[in-house]
Amino acid sequence: MDTASITHVVTEADTAQALGSGDLAVLATPRVLAWCEEATCAALELAADRTSVGTRVELEHLAASPVGATVTATANVVHTDGRLVRFQVAAHDADGTLLATGEVRRVVVDRERFLARIPPVKD
């Protein structure tokens, strides 16, 4: 799969006020980004021993969305180079208004090898 879309309805928990990225009860930029990244993950078909990690994000949040709005985030693969995958991402509301656009880069990794390199937290 090279394209995927996910749809969510904005709740109070998705607002800038709730996430600490502002003080308004509108869809927070960090949540828009999370939904765009969710779409990138859905667009990748990987073996069970593989996963992908985000390495770079560029996102323009262009329009506000109120609680109750339906938002669809779409990711399209635009470039692959070995393990690197670049996606064009966009989020639209139910009326088709462009809410956000940008690029997400992910790198495909071996799940176990990646986790083995992370040192445990010391008490």
Rank of each mutant, 00 (worst) to 15 (best):
T80R: 15
S21N: 07
A43R: 03
A73W: 01
A64Y: 00
G54Q: 06
L24G: 03
A48Q: 07
S65Y: 02
D23T: 14
S65E: 05
G96W: 06
L46A: 09
T40Y: 03
T74F: 02
A73Y: 04
A91C: 15
L44F: 01
G22P: 02
P66G: 15
A64K: 07
H79S: 14
V107F: 10
I118P: 02
A100G: 15
I6M: 03
R31P: 00
H8R: 14
L33Q: 03
P66V: 11
T40M: 06
H8Y: 05
E60I: 09
A73V: 13
G20N: 08
S21G: 06
N76T: 15
V77H: 03
R56S: 12
C41L: 09
S5W: 00
A13N: 10
L59F: 06
V53P: 06
A63R: 14
L99F: 05
V32Q: 03
R106L: 09
T11C: 04
R111Q: 08
E12S: 09
S52L: 04
A48N: 06
A63M: 08
T29R: 00
V78I: 15
V10Y: 00
T51G: 05
A91E: 05
A25G: 02
L33G: 02
V67M: 07
L115R: 14
T11S: 09
R56P: 00
L84D: 09
A69K: 09
A39I: 07
V108K: 04
D2L: 11
D49H: 13
S5H: 02
A34F: 00
A13W: 00
L44E: 06
S52W: 01
D110L: 07
D81H: 13
A43I: 04
E58V: 15
A16G: 14
T55Y: 02
L99T: 14
T55V: 15
A116S: 14
V85P: 09
R56A: 13
D49P: 00
A63T: 13
T74S: 11
V85Q: 08
T74E: 08
G96P: 06
A16C: 09
T55S: 14
T97S: 09
V121W: 02
S5G: 08
A16H: 01
Q17L: 14
D95M: 12
K122A: 13
S65W: 00
A94R: 13
A91Q: 05
T29E: 00
H8L: 05
W35M: 11
G68F: 04
H8D: 05
S21C: 05
F114S: 09
V107H: 05
T55A: 12
A69W: 02
T72S: 11
R31Y: 01
T101E: 11
L98E: 11
A25N: 06
E103M: 14
V109Y: 04
R117I: 07
D110H: 10
D14L: 04
L24W: 00
V9Q: 08
V85F: 10
V107D: 06
A116G: 10
P30K: 06
R106M: 08
V78M: 07
P66C: 10
V77C: 06
F114W: 11
A90E: 13
S5E: 07
T101D: 07
A94W: 05
